[in-house]
Design a protein around this nucleic acid. Structure first.
Lengths: 165, 165
DNA sequence: TTCCCTGCAAAAGTTTTGCACTACT
DNA sequence: AGTAGTGCAAAACTTTTGCAGGGAA
């Protein structure tokens, strides 16, 4: 059992610019990637992927398991984890380790973003800032290293909690 | 068993500005904080704290256990974890979760810093950049949130590995 | 028909806890 | 003496793996 998570849609690109049915696009991509790899599309995989794409982001394996159980009570934890790994291989999912014991998973292939996490209510807000990205590159250069990826998490109080508290 | 770690001392403040015997200072602080809390200074606690302060940073519980065993083979895992938690309570240790299953621990109370992690050799380099800190504050302000802390990890190739690879 | 996939259960890895015993202060 | 600390073993929790049976291509 982990900290509860609330989701805020933050700084999403305007709806018109996004494809109308992300869900279907993603399922198609999933099928294509599986075919490429000679893997099979099966009931449990469909269910898990569908729930994962449908649900809000930053879900834990435990939460995903519970959700999938609702529509397919037959599915076991092993299949959840195996499908999560498969989705990751297919570059449709990325795994995050926030300050908790368990991993959280989110849809990948979107534009890069970082996270703000409210320490009071647990809300996770995604954001992206060009300036920060550039400055990180500059710092890396100064250190003489090559950057492949990064992880930035800001922790604090969201506007709502600050007002309340 | 986890990924091996190499340590690079990076951008440390000049030696003259640091107290000569950090180790003793830290042990004294540890004793003081324990006294404040009505807790006892004991053999195992001494050994664990000493090894922790002596050793390089970003150690895992497993590694610490192995090191402590060398000087006190009697100590168990439970005491390692309990003492790690105690050191954290005493604000002498901070716990990090990089992209691995297990936690890593480092000496706290130093100036704030972020981490670069080489994806090839596992080397961890600490760094600090004022500009980045300021820009994070600016981004937080733009989002209407209050920042309490943050975590920035850069992943990539260190100079050495890039040259080799 | 051939592998791949599945669920179950057991294992593995990390961290925590219960308990009887020990040892600081 | 009294209370907190210790080691051991067992439990808890998350994730992985072995295996025998079932199903997609």
């Amino acid at each position: 059992m982990a900290r509860e998570e609330t989701i805020a849609a933050a700084e999403q690109p305007p709806a018109e610019r996004r494809p109308r049915n992300k869900m279907q696009d993603r399922m198609e991509t999933f099928h294509a990637r599986m075919r490429e790899r000679g893997l099979k599309s099966t009931g449990p995989r469909e269910d898990i992927a569908r729930v994962f794409f449908e649900l809000h982001r930053h879900i834990s394996a435990e939460e995903l398991y519970a959700e999938v159980k609702k529509i397919n009570p037959h599915v076991g934890y092993a299949t959840i984890y195996r499908t999560l790994k498969l989705l990751k291989d297919c570059e449709l999912l990325s795994e995050r380790h926030f300050d908790e014991g368990q991993a959280r998973y989110e849809v990948a292939g979107e534009q890069h973003h970082d996270h703000f996490i409210c320490e009071k209510c647990g809300k996770i807000v995604e954001f992206e800032d060009e300036g920060l990205e550039r400055m990180q590159q500059a710092v890396a250069q100064k250190m003489g290293v090559t950057l492949q990826r990064h992880k930035l998490e800001l922790y604090g109080l969201c506007g709502e909690c600050r007002r309340k508290g």
